[in-house]
């Protein structure tokens, strides 16, 4: 019945096998280790920048912030400076909270028709927890990976790694971010699958990135803890890419190529998908503008004159009736 997620799942498995077969059977290390990454990064940069420029090129004719609190009004009425900002500083705080801790999503409620007679709304925190866990774990994981692209590894990244493996479990030490990442992704997937309303609105394009990310996380975890690969060789390959002196060290295992290929797919897919919410959230006019249009005039770049019904025309229509009713008129009866 619900084939949308099946298609996406099959597609991600196919990508997985493609990389495996490409490296193991066809010996296409150069394709998967050098060509694909460069192409993917190029598509990502080109697509991301064009998308942002495309949005930026569209006008912002009106200031339409969603006001989620008390406006700036009389001196003795307390303004909600964050949820209804009237200054740039307020907007910056509002945006920071939105982007860093998903403030709007934190408000989420769930409606239930209690016993068929009463509507009840309760705080629904799990989507926020899942989303926040995923995004922060993803951020930590990506940042952590910078150790493969830098030599020497900058100090903050080493610290991050140490914090991330704080609990000192396992050998090699388990990164919490990886575990959280995978768990959050599974939660988001299961929620999409089992919550009827969310399943109903979901497109294949909603499942695909989930599976892709799950695939990336799984292959990464496999590589680190189970099917070990030569990590020094992997870094050599990565450094080769970023220094534009690409090379293919022989001891890199196929699991690495699979991981890399899925990441490349994500990069190339990113700008053409809903994942662009990452860029879009910064440009959302209901959040990134101050509610100050009564204080400060905002100009619409394409404002054009329109046909109105002037007072003169109005008085021409009704002059006699107005005079009769004792209403003042500009032009007396001729």
């Amino acid at each position: 019945m619900n084939v949308k997620y099946l298609y996406s799942l099959i597609l991600v498995i196919a990508l997985f096998l493609m990389a495996y077969a490409g490296v193991e059977m066809a010996g296409l290390q150069i394709v998967f280790g050098i060509i694909v990454p460069y192409v993917a990064v190029a598509i990502f940069l080109w697509g991301f920048i064009s998308k942002i420029l495309g949005w930026a090129n569209s006008a912002v004719p009106f200031r339409i912030p969603t006001t989620s609190g008390q406006q700036k009004s009389l001196d003795w009425i307390k303004q909600n400076k964050i949820d209804n900002p009237s200054t740039t500083a307020g907007v910056v705080v509002r945006m920071a909270l939105e982007i860093l801790v998903f403030r709007s999503l934190f408000r989420n409620t769930k409606m239930a028709l209690h016993k068929g007679v009463k509507l009840i709304y309760s705080w629904e925190i799990w989507l926020w927890v899942g989303a926040l866990a995923f995004h922060w774990a993803f951020f930590v994981t990506v940042t952590r990976h910078l150790r493969f692209f830098t030599d020497p590894v900058p100090f903050p990244i080493t610290i991050l790694e140490n914090v991330d493996s704080f609990f000192q479990v396992g050998l090699p030490l388990v990164f919490q971010s990886g575990v959280v990442l995978l768990a959050a992704l599974l939660f988001l997937f299961l929620r999409r699958l089992f919550e009827p309303q969310v399943r109903y609105i979901s497109l294949a394009a909603d499942y695909f990135p989930l599976f892709l990310l799950i695939g990336i996380a799984l292959s990464g975890i496999l590589m680190r803890y189970f099917i070990k690969t030569d990590i020094v060789a992997a870094k050599e390959l990565a450094m080769g890419l970023v220094t534009f002196k690409p090379c293919i060290p022989e001891t890199v295992g196929s699991i690495f190529y699979i991981h890399l290929f899925l990441v490349c797919t994500l990069l190339a897919y990113f700008p053409y998908s809903k994942l662009m919410h990452f860029g879009g959230v910064f440009l959302s006019p209901t959040r990134n503008l101050a509610n100050n249009t009564r204080m400060q005039r905002h100009v619409n770049p394409w404002n054009y004159p329109v046909k109105t019904h002037t007072y003169e025309e109005y008085e021409d229509d009704f002059r006699e009736k107005m005079i009769e009713a004792g209403l003042p008129v500009d032009k007396d009866k001729e």
Partner: peptide
């Protein structure tokens, strides 16, 4: 071209469903 709001809103929805039961008409 005239409204960035429209262009951004057409592109960035992730269909998380947080809005679904917030609408009085849906309820």
């Amino acid at each position: 071209e005239r409204f960035r709001s429209l262009k951004v809103f057409m592109d960035i929805c992730v269909r998380c469903g947080a809005c679904a039961d917030k609408c009085h008409f849906y309820i």
